[in-house]
Design a binder for these strands. Structure first.
Length: 402
DNA sequence: TCTGGGGTCCTAGGACCC
DNA sequence: TCTGGGGTCCTAGGACCC
């Protein structure tokens, strides 16, 4: 019998990077540990702090120097991404042995659709999984259980570390509504600041706010719909366990230790980033239809410029041509630059992305039309019995004409 | 709290087409 | 030549997440 009641688990590894480091070096166990870039060429912020370190008031994004002031005995470890990938793979392999319906949300958390798996008691099932992940893989996790992804995610946040929390729809007024609005997944600092003047402090305030028009004005139509559904525990989105390799954008960026105006230095970095992006596009077997750059100045204002191309590209030289051009157009030569980035989006399968040069790059549209007509005539002469269609792609707005 | 890097999704304005 | 409304695509920026 088909039931429309679902059982969704959200499993979240606790302090994942720090937990991996401790697992790799047991002498760190029980000590305050942070994972953080110590590379003098990078500005080091804390990526993860162990619970022992958090007790000193240390948190993610804090600078290492500040953290050391709070806790002089702190152990700081460089990140080892290979190690994290190794444990992440073990973790997800285990989840997939329970059900194929696993949607990774990041390196250390994922959703499972357990509807067809849990026969008796969901809590007991979760407890067995948590024990396995802790005792066999070696990592602590929190598990949230709910009738949809949103409630499962909210649930896993309620008790950490090693929590198991069930959040049913009927629990919402008691458990979820008293929480501050910022605890609602999708509501961040800015939205919270906009809601505050309306007297909205808790999720319950938001759920029961009488003036929907006012709310829409403040947060926008999409956010309003989202908020309204989530406040009442509504989320019909599926656990997406197929097409896991699909990506919609690929980017790399780097922050300089000191803000720079040296054009050669900046361009060298942009070129490096372009090569990285190109390599990742190729590895994913995709090509980009839009390429852009991002610049953050020393005063933290950020600007971006992008360009769409008719023929998807992933070759680093093709990308660099655009990146270089956009940068030349954009940079005044003296503003201090803190960060540069290269991004690509509107990605498509690589099949369509053979490196090609337009025959008519330097011509305007009238000339192109003439040239195409000539070409059609010529081809018709050669292959007279076939219909020939030629598409021009690549005018400013990327439309196609036949 | 003076703030890294990699993503997703939304908004708003302009250009263009029918 | 002027008017307009709906729809799509592109670009820039912003909010949010881990």
């Amino acid at each position: 019998m088909q039931t429309n009641y679902r059982i969704i688990f959200h499993i979240d590894l606790n302090c994942f990077f720090a937990a991996c480091e401790v697992l790799d070096n047991p002498s760190l166990k029980g000590k305050p540990v942070v994972v953080c870039h110590k590379d003098p060429l990078k500005r080091g912020i804390i990526l993860t702090a162990s619970y022992e370190a958090r007790r000193y008031g240390i948190y993610t994004t804090m600078l290492l120097n500040e953290a050391l002031l709070l806790c002089p005995g702190l152990t700081a470890v460089e990140p080892h991404y290979d190690l994290y990938n190794k444990y992440s793979n073990k973790f997800f392999a285990y989840l997939k042995s329970i059900t194929p319906k696993v949607e990774p949300m990041s390196i250390d958390e994922g959703f499972l659709d357990m509807t067809d798996v849990v026969k008796e008691n969901a809590y007991d099932f979760a407890k067995q999984m948590q024990d396995y992940i802790l005792n066999v893989i070696g990592l602590p996790c929190s598990i949230g259980i709910g009738p949809n992804k949103f409630l499962a995610k909210m649930a896993s946040d309620i008790k950490k570390p090693l929590g198991i929390t069930i959040l049913r729809k009927r629990d919402i007024p008691n458990i979820m509504w008293p929480l501050p609005v910022k605890d609602l997944f999708g509501v961040g600092k800015k939205t919270r600041a906009r809601l505050e003047p309306l007297g909205i402090k808790t999720i319950g305030d938001l759920a029961n706010y009488p003036d929907q028009d006012k709310l829409k004005e403040v947060v926008g139509p999409a956010m309003l719909e989202y908020i309204h559904d989530r406040c009442f525990g509504i989320d019909n989105s599926k656990v997406e366990y197929e097409n896991l390799d699909d990506v919609s954008s690929i980017s790399n960026e780097t922050t300089f230790q000191i803000s720079m105006t040296n054009i050669k230095f900046i361009k060298d970095n942009l070129k490096l980033l372009t090569n990285q992006v190109s390599a990742r596009l190729v590895r994913h077997k995709v090509a980009a239809q839009t390429v852009g750059i991002k610049i953050k100045f020393s005063n933290f204002t950020t600007i971006s410029r992008s360009r769409s191309v008719a023929r998807p590209i992933n070759d680093s030289l093709d990308l660099w041509e655009i990146v270089n051009d956009l940068f030349d157009d954009l940079y005044d030569g003296y503003s201090e630059i803190r960060l540069v980035g290269v991004f690509t989006n509107r990605l498509v399968d690589q099949v369509n992305s053979v490196r090609q040069y337009s025959l008519f790059d330097d011509l305007d549209n009238v000339e192109k039309d003439k040239k195409v007509n000539d070409l059609v005539k010529m081809l018709n002469k050669e292959y007279g019995d076939k219909t020939i269609r030629i598409g021009i792609e690549g005018n400013k707005y990327g439309r196609k004409r036949d």
